[in-house]
């Protein structure tokens, strides 16, 4: 029983990281209706930018983090302006494939610029384990959970209380009405992309600081699909709940079924949820009976 509680705690804590990784997907999907398959590569890019500024330019990690977030923001805005805006109104296939293509471009470019070898980022999160009673939680897992929750909470507050956040929500809920009340929807779309890319860049730095950094870091983002589908593609609250559920499930499958089931569990969950409740726990239900 004690072991069960320990695995549960570690699983739930590692779910925080999933939630942070899923945040960027949800922001873009909610704001612009695009599922961004390049989000993982935006994370990877952020981590490389951080590495370059921090180690090659020799700047303090806080400055490097700031630079990373700013750079990611600009990248997001640039992607929206050049590619997604041009494809507005095109069929789903074109838009999905455009983001897949962008992901390939980023991955290939990163491979050419930084090479395939594994890089190590400086330790941003303390590794010292945390004890809650008898239960040991690895430091990296615990602190990434805390940071992730803080970032998502900041996002929630931003959408709830600031002018920019409310405008974004308005544009997301109805473009026509948003135009009617004088919101500049194209600018909001670009900003949404920028914000999502910034969240991705930040998540990438954190992820790369815990694991290692290669151009394939972005592939990890696909395992977040389960988080998104469980929580609902367009729900910020869903991201947190989905992340914790998937983290817990993954820890459980790893502990009781064996390590190889850990990697496949998210995809089984995806299929199961899609069949039973495609819009997830908190997603908006699109009623269409065909």
């Amino acid at each position: 029983m004690n072991l069960f509680i320990e695995y549960s705690m570690v699983g739930i804590a590692s779910g925080g990281m999933y939630a942070l990784m899923a945040l960027g997907f949800v922001l873009v999907f909610k704001g612009t209706g695009v599922f961004n398959f390049a989000q993982g590569e935006l994370m990877m890019l952020g981590a490389y930018i951080f590495l370059s500024v921090n180690q090659l330019a020799g700047l303090h990690w806080s400055i490097a983090l700031l630079a990373t977030v700013l750079f990611a923001l600009l990248t997001g805005v640039l992607i929206e302006r050049t590619v997604l805006r041009a494809l507005a109104g095109q069929p789903l296939l074109s838009i999905v494939m455009a983001t897949v293509g962008l992901g390939l471009v980023l991955k290939g470019a990163a491979g050419l610029i930084w090479g395939q070898e594994q890089r190590t980022l400086p330790e941003l999160v303390p590794r010292k384990p945390i004890f809650i009673g008898d239960i040991l939680i690895p430091g990296a897992v615990f602190w990434s959970f805390v940071i992730s929750m803080a970032v998502i909470a900041a996002c929630l507050l931003y959408f709830r209380f600031t002018r920019g956040g409310v405008t974004m929500r308005a544009a997301a809920s109805s473009q026509v009405n948003a135009y009617a009340v004088g919101i500049n929807v194209p600018v909001i779309s670009a900003l949404t992309w920028g914000l999502a890319a910034a969240a991705g860049g930040f998540a990438g730095v954190l992820l790369a600081a815990i694991n290692n950094l290669t151009p394939h870091l972005g592939d990890l983002a696909l395992s977040v699909l389960a988080v998104l589908i469980v929580g609902g593609l367009d729900s910020l609250a869903g991201v947190i709940v989905g992340g914790l559920i998937i983290g817990w499930l993954q820890s459980m499958t790893g502990a009781y079924l064996g390590g190889q089931y850990r990697e496949i569990m998210p995809f089984i969950v995806v299929l199961a949820v899609l069949l039973v409740r495609p819009h997830g726990l908190f997603g908006r239900k699109e009623i269409e009976r065909i």
Binding site: A98, K107, G111
Partner: peptide, 24 residues
């Protein structure tokens, strides 16, 4: 060989985006 793998990804990505934008 290492360069080739990355160059392939880059070129495939550019082909996808380029065709979608300019010759759908």
């Amino acid at each position: 060989a290492i360069m080739l793998a990355s160059a392939r990804e880059l070129v495939f990505g550019l082909l996808i985006v380029g065709f979608l934008l300019f010759e759908p």
